[in-house]
Design a binder for these strands. Sequence first.
DNA 1: ATATAAACGCTAATCGATAATCGTTGGATG
DNA 2: CATCCAACGATTATCGATTAGCGTTTATAT
Lengths: 237, 237
Amino acid sequence: MIQRVVLSEQVKEELLDGIMSGRFKPGDRLVESQIAKRMGISQSPVREALRDLVAMRFVEVEPHKGARVRKMDDREVVEVYPVRARLEELAGQMAVERAQAHIDDLERAVDKMGRAFRDRDARTMAHWDVRFHRTILEAADNRILLETWNSLMIEARTYLTLSNLMVRRPDVDLTPWHHPIIDAIRSGDPGRCGAEMRKHVEDIGSVMREAVAEGTLDATQAEAHDSNPLRREAKVG
Amino acid sequence: MIQRVVLSEQVKEELLDGIMSGRFKPGDRLVESQIAKRMGISQSPVREALRDLVAMRFVEVEPHKGARVRKMDDREVVEVYPVRARLEELAGQMAVERAQAHIDDLERAVDKMGRAFRDRDARTMAHWDVRFHRTILEAADNRILLETWNSLMIEARTYLTLSNLMVRRPDVDLTPWHHPIIDAIRSGDPGRCGAEMRKHVEDIGSVMREAVAEGTLDATQAEAHDSNPLRREAKVG
DNA sequence: ATATAAACGCTAATCGATAATCGTTGGATG
DNA sequence: CATCCAACGATTATCGATTAGCGTTTATAT
């Protein structure tokens, strides 16, 4: 069997895609042996992939009990925004100068986001939304900052946010919220840019706080999760 | 063989202790088979432990080449402080109220820190220093914030900082730098507390920038690392 | 002496099998 | 009928062995 990269890496990608696409829903069990059989490999690489996903916080395992897709509880959904806000504030301040060269990228991302909104395609929208933010994070040119931000599972969370919003407030489009940031970058003022970034993220945080208050998150997120194992026990493989 | 926790977890602790204590130095190879043999177990749990440590960024692996203790390069040493500063600023703001109940803990930590300084014991000093900060992070009562902060390997970095400083500026004691934070908490003013936290971390960042500029970090850190494998190839096991 | 190629040794990556552990099910007992 | 306990089935955790990849060294030729 010819392979360009290590198997565990391929498995990780596969599972990640499954989680991000919603094929595996929060609470679904990820049984090593079943995944291994389905992919025609042994358990070891699957196990390693799962461990990686645990580190990335997409999956949780209990020793001797197994792995399941992690459910973001309400608390966590809300708690991430203050953290993100401060990180992106810093990024905005640091990035202003270097981001000038990427204004085209940023505008294109916003454009794609708008199209995706009109297509009611939350997944694509999340993709470009994250791309927008990541562009600025990268321009900040601080590896630790970027890695820290990446560790927050922004893409998965953004997808959740947007798909929830698309159901709950079908007419609200977050796309234009990005324009003040681009303007701030154009102005070249680090303080302003940081402030806009922070405000932007905090505003999204407010939106999510509403969603949690209304209790619409679970519905959007996990039809899958059910604490009663007799009624539903998702087996994936 | 009776065991209370999974083997891979024990291995992880063992290796972590080795890294933190400096028994394994940056650049040292961590050979699965040798560690396994030394601990009298098979390679699998060792492998898993290494993967975990990679996720924690204490170790790096190249496919088919193996694992080695990760070296913090100068850039990374400096880059972490702005990030930490913003996270702790947020923590300070959020924690003010709840931290009131922990002022005793904070003062005790500072006290222990001071004693450790007089004993020239950088390791203990780092321990209590981190404990001080972690107390505030926990009081902020935001799991994501705490996890994010934890992911920055603060303890290892602080140890590096303090042991470097102890050599380079034997008379400089960072302990009193913590008092303004305690005062700020006493005042109950979130803005002030956040500001003090941020300033504190940024000040330490400045100290480390100096260290890097003077090029004294490598000496403190890794006598071990040597890019020429013919001259030195650390084998651990 | 230098450059190129083949072969070797070391180590990680993967495999297939076994042991350990958990939750449940079914039966025995009161 | 309710309760406790033992055995079972499912799944993970670990093992020992095999396969594959990389780096170096040795062999060969120029």
